[in-house]
Design a protein around this nucleic acid. Sequence first.
DNA 1: GGGCTCACG
DNA 2: GACGTACGTGAGCCCG
Length: 926
Amino acid sequence: MSDTFGKGHHLHLIDGSAYIFRAYHALPPLTRKSDGLPVGAVAGFCNILFRYLNGNKGADAPTHVAVIFDHSSKTFRNDIYPEYKANRPELPEDLRPQFPLTRDATRAFNIACIETEGYEADDIIATLSCRARDAGGRVTIISSDKDLMQLVGDGVGMLDPMKNKLIGPDEVFEKFGVAPNRVVDVQSLAGDSVDNVPGAPGIGIKTAALLIQEYGDLESLLERAGEIKQPKRRESLINNADLIRISKRLVQLDCDTPLEDSFDSMAVNPPEAEELLKFLTEMEFRTLTKRVADSLKVEAPTPPAVVEDKPDLPFDHAKYENVSTADALGKWIDRIYARGYVAVDTETTSLDEMRADLVGISLCVEAGQACYIPLGHKQGGGDLFGSSELSDGQMPMGEALEMLRPMLCDASILKIGQNMKYDAKIFACQGVEVTPIDDTMLMSSALNAGLHNHGMDTLADKYLGHTPIPIKSLLGSGKSQITFDLVPVDEAVKYAAEDADITLRLWQLFKPQLHRKSVTTVYETLERPLVPVLAKMEMTGIQVDRDTLSRMSNTFAQKMGALEAEIQTLAGRSFNVGSPKQLGEILFDEMGLQGGKKGKTGAYATGADVLEDLATEHELPGKVLDWRQLAKLKSTYTDALQDHINPETGRVHTSYSLVGAVTGRLSSTDPNLQNIPVRSEEGRRIREAFVAPKGRVMVSLDYSQIELRILAHIAEIPALKQAFKDGIDIHAMTASEMFGVPVEGMDPMVRRQAKAINFGVIYGISGFGLARNLRIPRGEAQGFIDRYFERFPGIREYMDATTQFAKDNGYVQTLFGRRIHTPEINAKGPAAGFAKRAAINAPIQGTAADIIRRAMVRMPDATRDLDAKMLLQVHDELIFEVAEDAVDPLIKIAREIMEGAALPAVHLSVPITVDAGQGANWAEAH
DNA sequence: GGGCTCACG
DNA sequence: GACGTACGTGAGCCCG
């Protein structure tokens, strides 16, 4: 570093990271209009720089200046003490993509911009201060960070930009009670709860200063700690000497940070008008652009008429790039780092992530500019089973993944996907953990639940006016369907890159809408953080015992055969028992039973309720019911589940959808593990096949009556709330209130009726529905409902208020702000009835769904020290697989998390309680 | 591929 | 005055 810097020169060192955070928190969220890029912090940062430059015209003006940034949150201090700064709140998502832009801004203002991997901005500031002072120059550090005060003195000063106040040795003494050269000693003793510097327990800045004043410096103090008179201080210092020394290494700034930058490169130069205005215009900061132009005495460039024509940018498949070399991929990775975000999509051979092979990756950084990296395409036209020869012109998969890995794992690069859980699992199978992520499907669900589904085709059509290339056109359909690895590369480029392009455009559209529609918190706390949690659960899977299922299938088949013979004897001829159409004809036409009703297709209804009624008159319907139960158990469960056992893991891996249900509930597919039988004894035994491996235990925790508790809270029903607080049987209490009978020795029938009413209320009760459910006359059911509303008037108010809210706003919401749209609420006819009941139910079901989601998000961290895996979620139940000796702590911790999951966002006025069970299999645990 | 039936919360 | 109704899901089967 050969430099002309020296005597008479004055260096300003600006703490850039502090400026960014100040700008971010001081300003409301601001996004660039054309594409929704968050730019609030960049705007504030530019304003600060502009004011700084304008204020620097006096005699004391700097000759040199640099802005210093933190490179990343990981520094050498984490190697010394892993907990250092560990309790920092997570970076706000809309701040992350702004970091690279603040560097751009600094350079646009023609100011040097410095950061170094592994070091904090403070270390760079320390190093430059020392070097500048040693060269004979003067330094002013522009920051209010107390951690920098150790540098003050001997030609180095500080300026607090907030208060515009100079900080010299006197001010430092005022703050720390010692001279600047002893500040580190005081900080080492006092610790810092914000940065998680431990220090000595029970010793604060005041005490530390007294001790240092008395003993001179930290080492002397520690050596002579035994002389301290106060027993508490003495003990604390003696017992924590190591911790204090570690603290010293944490707070001591490093004056030997490796730096290439010369002082000459920091010489003050006025901004290049053209460059600066170009940047500000690109950021679409109109006011600032004008003010800067005025101050530079040049014409402000006319803002480009970008705003409206961007969404109409056509989809040009010819523009998509086929990336087949390391050079080309490197250029894309550079572009991604310059942007700070990228839309990513993977192409594979299967929708089942656990069995899928990666075929290619597409990337998009800007609308219309996307690429596809083919990796596993095979030569078509081979033998019958397809050739295993890779086609030419593809990068080796390993090389491409190793190039992409740092970017995919980089905390400062946001990876955007449509249904990112799928792609994250594909990458996870390749050993790459993709983080952080954004998901357009989940954004749409937070914004548009109830209006439409959230698949890419729907979103592209609705929001971009574009119909993507149908996958069928590449793969075909039915028996001749091929897998993506056999698609020719040039066709794959168009299809795959288009998906990434669409995803990026949707993200640009949705991101600013989250704020505008007040669902940022929903997205950030209930949707996005669940992606890695569910991905982990799905990849873990649950062990299922094939022999148990197979034995049950055989038993069912035998019983069905016997029943079938009996049924056909009773019917007088053979027919397909599994055909509702044929059964209807047997029952109502041939056997002449009464009460046959035809549905819209002209077939007789033969549902369980119909057959149950007929069973009193004839033997056959009851046998059909028995047969149907067995047929269901066999085909849907004992047979089908065996096909879902993954041959490699021996476990069943379901797939959860975060957007399957409008209320916010999860749904489960391939297989659905949320409807495994439990209500019938015969069905429940299927759960015996879901087992914990040897030495481990299945644990189930489920919320008790959570929806009724939420109803009691939302509708403010004092009697219900009190009953939950007292822990008494809620259905018995309801019956007692309604029918005036004591809870003690209650007729089970009466309790059953009250229970049906309680559930009916949650569903948007009607006399008809209750009558059918309880099999009582409609008038009687209506009487129950009237009495219920009389006893609990808050319920009627809740129903009316919710319906009205839906009519006024077009949506209803949960206690956590999740919105469920109700577009049919103002419709005429039966649709209005459906919409009304759905509107009444959605806030209750949805709030329960939000609560368990919050619990699931917190669970991995809360149970990280336990040998326990979360396997399944069944709406109000979580199932874990736990090492034997971890069962009790797991139950304790998981229960705490579940019962407190609403906090601190919502304080429920009823207690939430969780029941726990354990055993060798799911049947025992439940 | 729509409709019916039935498994779950 | 008639209509048609419990809320939210997914899967397997029949049948056109």
